[in-house]
Design a protein around this nucleic acid. Structure first.
Lengths: 352, 352
DNA sequence: GCTCAAACGTTAAACGTTTTACCTTTTAGC
DNA sequence: GCTAAAAGGTAAAACGTTTAACGTTTGAGC
């Protein structure tokens, strides 16, 4: 009777009158490798259950040189967009009995490098980068590749690198938003983008331009604002909108990089006395949970955040286990336009 | 020259021409225990740096029977309130070289028990419960105590248990909000609370009542709505408000359990044709980043989420290391009323 | 009755640390 | 010059698994 010490295979072996090896085989259900009589099997399992055996993951990992945890580097935890992605990641991890180690850039001096180092120190079996701005020196990615630590990007497609990713079709998303506004009769449509370093910024811009071109509308550079700050809080949308509001003639509609920006932009417009959507139609991006309850409820382009997280985690785990197929490595999901009231169209669409 | 295998103390020892023991002592800087010549020291450190030595945490933990990671059980990741807390937790962990393993109840079937089990399986050295609804059977807490796994609660003070916590003074927070509305002349002030299981609900209710009593106002049970759902998204506030709006005579002011509820409540009121704050003054709780950009900007009671996370993590780590003093184990922080426009008072207070 | 496979196990080494206990060499004290 | 202790180090065991390589029964086939 050990005093409050944790229970080991040894203990089980003794109590079940078998060797440690046998206990191990039973617990891990290695029936294929070696034959174990149903009798012994039962005995071991009963004991294990009775004493509440929990395998020591440190010993397991030490011995097998495999770790069941992977790192997640996320841009900002406080952002519900990433919160949903993290949630998806967690779902998949639980299902496959892996463990995500989450670190966010907010607290790591904006240093992807430091985050990666922490994950490596902890022997993460792989790393997921969620919406991370890509200031990773290539060297780091090479190192990871060399040491056989797979990587998957979420919402941050960088095709040149041939690294697996899960992303939404940003061009299409921005196209849908812009087209919707055009069809509502708008001709002067503004655009607030995220910082240049985010690959999605460029893609959204392309989608926006493509829509304008398709409908033969001219495009004016002064209608496009870009935020330099990486943090995507409403404040960014607010200040960008303040600048856009100086333009003349005024815009009648606006696409924003995400719902948080939209919230800030709406605020700036309202403070200038504009009514939404009468004086300014606004479309967001992401469709975070709160968007349906903004005043007015926000028309926005939905990203399947939860699913993105789930798929990415599954891909990473496949990669860790060496079963990720090339053709399943590059996933682009479809965005969907959610019409509410901030664009002045569609059904009144009350929340819920 | 091993092929892409990880570098061990053994390697370092060989290259520095010392024993593994010595290498270990140098790396861990155990100067106190045993004397090591500056010369040897240097040699070992140089080699370690050159080859990029990373101690194997599995071997370390296996040997020392200590783990440098702790579990965090959080109610919902998608909620910016918890996002901020998590961020604070991470800050403190990084500083003290610990590692938080985050699991959220959204994905664990609402089972605190399952979450705890996962953390235990992973040999977490302690567990932090963030805003978790307390459906933990007491047995689990006892088990944890027995096995010497410290626990700290965040935003979930349960005094009966004598378990360390960090919380905000909920009574005072609700009091401040209510008093503010009273001073603005309101007499019929509604209250939307969270579910009963959240201890803060009762406390906020007490603060609210205390303010009414202090100013000699009567109190009506029909002005208080409570959400049953544990998820605190705007939808909860919305449906509670729909019920409150049926009351007659109508309320002129409203306190909500959190900013998300406030957002939903405002939406419900606006849909009924009410203007905020002219027809209904609203005060939220938490002061999440978006609150300043709601329309109208939300008057709210600020919780220092980041700090709460930081303090709690520091406490837990102290407890893990056995240095947590009793008198530092029960922390109640002061809430602060942030006056914006949703209550119809105070300076115009533009965001930023 | 002997041989040969199954069938069912076991022994022991290894994973990379930390730590206890021990071993030399040098230095100081007299 | 001898002794004792300090200085600087090392060998080996242990942590709890997994796994490669071996035993030992048992029963069937002849």
């Amino acid at each position: 009777m050990r005093k409050s010490m944790s229970i080991t295979l040894q203990d089980i072996a003794e109590q079940a009158h078998v060797s440690v090896t046998t206990a191990s085989k039973v617990i891990n259900d290695k029936a294929s490798e070696i034959r174990i009589s149903p009798d012994t099997r039962d005995r071991v399992l009963t004991v294990a259950k009775r004493v509440g055996y929990r395998p020591n993951p440190f010993a397991q990992s030490l011995r097998t040189k495999k770790s069941r945890s992977f790192g997640v580097v996320v841009a900002e935890m406080r952002n519900p967009y990433f919160g949903a992605i993290l949630s998806g990641i967690e779902q998949a991890s639980i299902a496959r009995e892996y463990y995500p180690l989450i670190s966010s850039l907010e607290n790591n001096f904006g240093e992807e490098k430091a985050c990666v180092e922490v994950h490596r120190a902890n022997r993460a079996a792989g790393i997921l980068f969620a919406g991370t701005v890509f200031r990773l020196e290539e060297g780091i990615l090479h190192q990871l590749a060399e040491d056989n630590i797979p990587v998957v990007f979420i919402g941050n497609k960088v095709e040149a690198l041939r690294i697996p990713y899960v992303d939404v079709d940003n061009v299409k998303g921005a196209f849908l938003a812009t087209e919707h506004l055009i069809k509502l009769g708008h001709r002067r449509i503004g655009l607030i983008l995220g910082p240049d370093e985010i690959p999605a910024s460029k893609r959204r811009w392309r989608g926006y331009k493509r829509a304008l071109e398709k409908y033969g509308l001219q495009h004016d550079e002064r209608w496009v604002e870009q935020e330099a700050e990486l943090r995507s809080d409403p404040g960014s949308g607010y200040s960008a909108m303040v600048r856009l509001l100086e333009g003349d003639p005024p815009l009648t509609a606006l696409c924003t990089f995400n719902d948080q920006y939209a919230l800030g932009a709406i605020r700036a417009a309202v403070e200038k006395g504009l009514a939404i959507p009468q004086d300014l139609a606004v479309v967001g991006f992401d469709n975070i949970a709160a968007a349906a309850y903004y005043s007015p409820p926000l028309t926005t382009v939905e990203q399947p955040m939860l699913e993105m997280g789930r798929i990415a985690a599954d891909m990473l785990i496949d990669a860790i286990e060496g079963t990720l197929k090339r053709e399943r490595s590059f996933v682009t999901l479809d965005p969907k336009l959610i019409i509410r009231e901030s664009c002045g169209a569609g059904p009144p669409d009350k929340p819920r």
